[in-house]
Design a protein around this nucleic acid. Structure first.
Length: 648
RNA sequence: GCUGCUGUAGCUCAGAGGUAGAGCACUCCCUUGGUAAGGGAGAGGUCGAGAGUUCAAUUCUCUCCAGCAGCACCA
């Protein structure tokens, strides 16, 4: 038998018979490693203990101490164990797919009856039984015809379809957990007992389309989370609870920022507190846009369908537009309008007024554009995904030569804003030409190069999303990461040579002839509604002082201090701080608790001692200790903090 | 839009085929209290909307609306 040489992480190599498995290799090193082994890295690839190695390779044996492969295997095996448990309890259930996802796994089932939350406990119990059986995991490579016949005979049509979708040259692998079999590319653990029986939990049941296609069957998906041990699981569940506490819908109510109601689904009723955040942010953005060389415009909400037909939106997005029909007495037919779902066609109309010269370019046009989109009901989510929203929209009309410099300029613009708003962790993605597109390959080459080079010029790495661009041009997406690691795509920059063409935008070039400008669609925050939602969740409601809607509450400890309370409030207001008095007939404990829950960043308590000394007792949100400061000093301090970052 | 779940006082939630409950919030009274809930009294609901079954429906059934989770979608 041929010999192969396997090199271990310490650099030592050993000879084995070709076809040796990592299980055998591990056992050859020590009995205990043989038992502890869960998988291997062979030439860097995650490798099942049972897969033969046929050539010289590097090998590392994984144990539960190797967190990454361990979690991958635990979650993957749990997917199989859960599917087995479900089929043991309900033999008529058909299995489909069950991949590993962040923190856990899911498995999609086809079953006539819906699963109930009570079923989860039953399934979990069965899973624990399976784990405790410590049954071996076994694998074999099957040929295609046999596998298809097997699944046809067993009434598993989804598996047949999966096999048919696997490329012909790929081997089909079967896995058994005990007697239960599943098609799977692996790798898996040695035996079910390696799964920590107390490290997982079934979380939820939800619908999911077969193969992600909304035209196909709706399956039932069960989600689970899994970790190496009980403690890690507990931490994860704890984290979920913390995340729920910063839900902007809950904080929006607790901080009295906004509400939504049935009569206007997907639209925000901003309360005074929330609107203060909104206008503060908008004022800030307006200053930034001025700094960035934009002119601000404002365009109509209700626009005749003719414009949407000309722009191409009517064809593509009619279903998602709010249509407004106007019946006039003497008109021959109804006028059909649509609430604007985006601002770009209107901006082209502004551009088109009067002749434009090459000297006018680049022309940077911005609008806080109120848009309305009829989003599918299931897509709505608090103020994050709404039907009525305001974009911090902008369009840069420029020549092709200017794409690169304007893009670099925008990246700088956005970078300053994200930094001011406290987001330093963000990434750029470049989406390139899709299969369906207009324009020559040369044009695409040039546009994609310009975007990529602009990122480099601005000193930013970027990731490429192949084929994800719009049909009319490539785009950049700016994704920021929040305090609990979630990612939000907010900024975008899209190159578009199509719309200027459709809406006949032109400028007079140096040569005296008419030319077509290119448009760069760009947004920094995306929408105010969504961005404010992100800010609320990022800070768990404890917004930076300058953005906090209620900055200071001055609370009287005794009613004899009321006059002084009003004096302090007046002094703060005069210094540009949002301050209010609390002279209610309540104890200071009560007031502190209430305003702390309301996320007011600073509480100034005053009693007779402060009145006499002309001081205040300062308590910052989240801190237990207080400090006594002279009135003039705290006014100066808070006034400085209330200044937006760009004005400091 | 699809699957499942939910809708009772401002909020969080309990309830049962026969005239609706708690805590907090709110109003008034007592209390002037030193940094996360002082005490008492009072007011507050067409039980999401409509239809059906029933002597009787907030409760059961159906339709619609809205919300939640996930999927699909996101110019």
């Amino acid at each position: 038998m041929a010999q192969i040489s396997l090199t271990f992480p310490d650099g030592n190599a050993r000879e084995y018979d070709a076809g040796v498995t990592p299980a055998e290799v591990a056992a050859s090193i020590s009995t205990s490693l043989g038992k502890k082994a869960i998988s291997a890295q062979v030439n860097g690839r995650h490798w099942d203990l049972q897969w033969p190695i046929e050539t010289d390779a590097t090998i590392a044996i994984n144990t539960m101490k190797d967190a990454e492969p361990a979690l991958e295997l635990i979650r993957h095996d749990l997917a199989h164990i859960m599917a087995r448990a479900v089929q043991e309890i309900w033999p008529d259930v058909k299995v489909t797919i069950g991949p590993v996802i962040k923190d856990g796994w899911y498995y999609d089932f086809d079953r006539a009856e819906p699963f109930t939350p009570e079923d989860l406990a039953v399934i979990e119990k069965k899973m624990k039984e399976i784990i405790n059986k410590r049954e071996p995991v076994r694998t074999e490579v099957w040929d295609r015809a046999r596998a298809i016949k097997h699944y046809e005979d067993n009434g598993e049509p989804y598996k047949v379809e999966l096999i048919e979708a696997i490329p012909g040259d790929e081997p089909l692998r079967m896995y058994w957990h005990g007697d239960w079999q599943d098609l799977c590319r692996g790798p898996h653990l040695q035996h079910t007992g390696q799964v920590p029986a107390d490290g997982f939990k079934l979380m939820s049941i939800a619908g999911a389309y077969w193969r992600g296609d909304s035209n196909r069957a709706m399956l039932q998906r069960i989600y689970g989370v899994a970790f190496q041990n009980k403690e890690d699981l507990r931490k994860h569940l704890n984290m979920l609870e913390e995340a729920a506490k910063r839900d902007h819908r809950r904080l929006g109510r607790e901080m009295d920022l906004f509400h939504m109601q049935e009569e206007a689904p997907g639209q925000v009723f901003w309360h005074p507190n929330g609107w203060k955040i909104y206008t503060t942010l908008q004022d800030y953005m307006r200053r930034q846009q001025e700094r960035g060389g934009y002119v601000e415009v404002n365009t109509p909400q209700v626009v005749d369908r003719k414009l949407w037909e000309a722009s191409g939106h009517w064809d593509k997005y009619q279903e998602n537009m709010f249509i407004v029909e106007v019946d006039e007495d003497h008109a021959r037919e109804k006028a059909v309008n649509a609430l604007k779902p985006m601002n770009c066609p209107c901006h082209v109309q502004v551009f088109n007024q009067g002749l434009k010269s090459y000297r006018d370019l680049p022309l940077r046009m911005a609008e806080f554009g109120s848009c309305a989109r009829y989003e599918p009901s299931g897509a709505l989510h608090g103020i994050m995904r709404v039907r009525g929203f305001t974009q911090d929209d902008g369009h840069i009309f420029c020549t092709e030569d200017q794409i690169e410099s304007e893009t670099a300029r925008f990246i700088d613009f956005l970078s300053k804003i994200y930094s001011d708003l406290g987001f330093d962790d963000w990434t750029i993605k470049l989406s390139t030409r899709p299969e369906q597109r207009i324009g020559s390959d040369e044009t695409w080459d040039e546009m994609e190069r310009a975007l990529g080079d602009a990122c480099k010029a601005a000193g930013h790495e970027f990731e490429i999303l192949e084929g994800e661009g719009a049909f009319y041009g490539p785009k950049l997406e700016f994704t920021l990461t929040d305090a609990i690691g979630r990612q939000w795509q907010c900024g975008t920059l899209q190159v578009d040579a199509n719309l200027p063409e459709r809406l006949d935008a032109t400028f007079i070039g140096q040569d005296g002839a008419k030319h077509r400008p290119v448009m760069l669609h760009r947004a920094t925050l995306g929408s105010f509604e969504r961005f404010i939602g992100i800010l609320i969740e990022e800070h768990a409601g404890k917004l930076p002082f300058w953005l906090a809607p209620r900055q200071v509450v001055v609370a009287a400890i005794v009613s004899d201090a009321d006059d002084y309370v009003h004096e302090v409030v007046a002094a703060l207001k005069a210094a540009g701080v949002r301050a209010e008095a609390d002279v209610r007939n309540e104890k200071i404990n009560y007031k502190v608790r209430e305003h702390s829950l309301g996320k007011v960043p600073v509480i100034l308590a005053v009693g007779m001692k402060e009145v006499e000394e002309r001081t205040v007792s300062v308590r910052r949100l989240g801190e237990k200790q207080t400090s006594v400061q002279p009135l003039a000093a705290i006014v100066e301090e808070l006034s400085a903090e209330a200044t937006p970052p760009d004005l400091r």
